[in-house]
Amino acid sequence: MRVQKLFFISKRCDGCRACEVACLEKHSQSQSIFMTKMEQPSPQPRIKVKRPGNQYWATVCQHCTDSMCVRACMTGAMQYSPEGEVFHNTNKCVGCWMCIMVCPFGAIAPLNEAKKASKCDLCKDEKIPPCVASCSRQALFYGTPEEYEMKVAGD
């Protein structure tokens, strides 16, 4: 099986940030969008929608095939799943920020209090990631590269 990952299609994004909220809720202790902001330490969204210019851009882990973060991680916390996603074993993470130093997307955030790096884990326990489910513009596509090609590129 090939890697399933998030594809962000910037021309479809209208910057509603629903993905961020969905991600926050999913990765919060309370599982409540009303409570998350009050949590300590406060959870961080792992997808961040920015508007650097006229278009939106989602900063999110691209699950690179030949990842710089995996090679830079000095603890072995960043590794590839058997399918090829890049996943982060927070137990092993010591917060050295080597991954942050190399990720060219800025998709890994430092959780300073916890001394752990934080990045998209594709919510493998869900059928599709909540950020994708919440995107009304279908600017996020979750699937294998083949599926992307058939459903988006060949569209």
Binding site: F7, I9, S10, C64, D66, P104, F105, P145
Partner: peptide, 8 residues
Amino acid sequence: LGCHVCVT
């Protein structure tokens, strides 16, 4: 890197 940003 195989990040596929160019693809999208």
